[in-house]
Design a protein around this nucleic acid. Structure first.
Lengths: 188, 188
DNA sequence: GTCTATAATACGATAGAC
DNA sequence: GTCTATCGTATTATAGAC
C-alpha cells in the first residue's frame, strides 16, 4: 500500500539530511527502507529526482509544523523565535550533529544544477519564512520588517546549523539565538 | 611549485563551489584543468580527499583575504561588515547565483561523513571568524561579544547565500546586510 | 501490481609503459 | 617523473518474470 511509499520517502528524508543528495544512493534508500528496486520506480517513475522532490516537500511540512507549534506557544515572537532556535540546537546535538536542516544539503547541491529541486527548496524556505513573518507581524513589527527579519532568521538558522555541525558544538546556534533576541529587542 | 598542480586545485575550487563534493568527479576536474589522470594521483597520492582538503584551504585563504581587505577599508566595523555582505551579494549575482560560499557544499556534505574534510572546513570558518572578531574588538565590542557576533555574521552570511541561490535573488543577502547593521548599531 | 535480475554508465583508483 | 589504459565497484535506470 502507500505505507511502503511513505517508508521510502521517510528514509530518503533521513539519509539526505545527513549525507546530501549525491552521496545518497537509491540502493541505500531501498536497503534501509526494506523496499525492492522495482517498487521505487513504480511509485516514482521519474526516478531519484521525483523521489527527492517529494522528500523535500515532506521535510518542509514537518519543519513548518514544528515552527508553528513553537510560535503558538508564546505570545511574543521576541521569546518564541529564540526559543525555537534553542530547541533546534538541542535537536542537532541530540543527533550527534548529523541531522539539522533536512533540505540544506539538497538546496546547496542543486541550486545551480537542478531547476526542479531548487524550486522545491525555494518553496520550503518560503513556507518557513511565512510562519515566522506572520508571528512577527502579530508581535507589532511592520509587514516589510517582518519579511526581512524572517529571511534573516532562516539564514542565520541555516548557517548556524552548518557551523554547529562543522564544529561539533551547539555554540554557534546558541550564539544565533542570543543575537537574534537582541535584534528583535532592538525594536520595530 | 608546479603550475599544473595549482591548476588542478583551482579547478576543484571552482567546480565544488557550484556543484559540491560528490557531484564533482575527478574526470571533470581533469578535463577542465587539462591534466591527465596520472598527474592527479602523482600530485595527490591520497586521491580526491587530499585534493579537496587543499582546495578548501585555498578557498579559505582567498575569502579570508577578501574579508581582511574590506575590513581594512573602513574605520568602523559597523560600516565595514555590512559593506562586505553587500559586496558578496553582488558577487553572487555576478556569477548568476552559481558561486558564493566556496566551501559551503563541502561543509554540509562532509560534516557527518568525512572527519578530515569537516576539520578543514571548521578551520576555514574559524579563520574568517577571527578576522571579523578582531575588527569588532577594535571597534569597541567586548572580546566575548565580538566572538559571538562574528559567529552570527558568518552564519547569516552562509545562510543568506543559500537562500539567495535558491531564490535566484540577492534580496536575502541584502536583508542580512541591513539587519546585521542594525544589530551592530544596537551597541556593545 | 510487485519484485528480481540486469543493463548502461560513471565513478575513484591503479598498474605499468615510456 | 609523466602519462595512458584499464580495473573493480559504485551509480541510476530498465526489462521482464510472477
Amino acid at each position: 500500500m502507500s505505507t511502503k511509499r511513505d517508508q521510502i520517502i521517510d528514509t530518503t528524508c533521513q539519509l539526505m539530511e545527513v549525507q546530501g543528495y549525491h552521496a545518497t544512493g537509491l540502493n541505500q534508500i531501498l536497503a534501509e527502507s526494506g523496499a525492492p528496486k522495482g517498487s521505487l520506480y513504480y511509485y516514482f517513475p521519474a526516478g531519484k529526482e521525483e523521489l527527492t522532490i517529494e522528500a523535500v516537500a515532506r521535510s518542509a511540512r514537518a519543519i513548518e509544523q514544528r515552527i508553528s507549534l513553537v510560535m503558538a506557544d508564546s505570545d511574543d515572537p521576541i521569546t518564541a523565535v529564540p526559543t525555537f532556535i534553542t530547541l533546534l540546537a538541542q535537536q542537532v546535538a541530540a543527533s550527534n550533529f548529523s541531522a539539522g536542516g533536512p533540505i540544506t544539503a539538497i538546496a546547496v547541491e542543486s541550486a545551480s544544477t537542478n531547476e526542479r529541486l531548487r524550486e522545491a527548496c525555494r518553496q520550503a524556505y518560503q513556507s518557513w519564512q511565512d510562519v515566522f513573518a506572520e508571528k512577527l507581524r502579530q508581535g507589532g513589527f511592520s509587514a516589510a520588517r517582518s519579511r526581512r527579519l524572517s529571511a534573516v532568521i532562516i539564514a542565520a538558522l541555516e548557517g548556524g546549523i552548518i557551523l554547529s555541525r562543522s564544529q561539533q558544538s551547539i555554540q554557534p546556534l546558541l550564539d544565533v539565538a542570543e543575537e537574534v533576541e537582541l535584534l528583535l529587542r532592538g525594536g520595530p
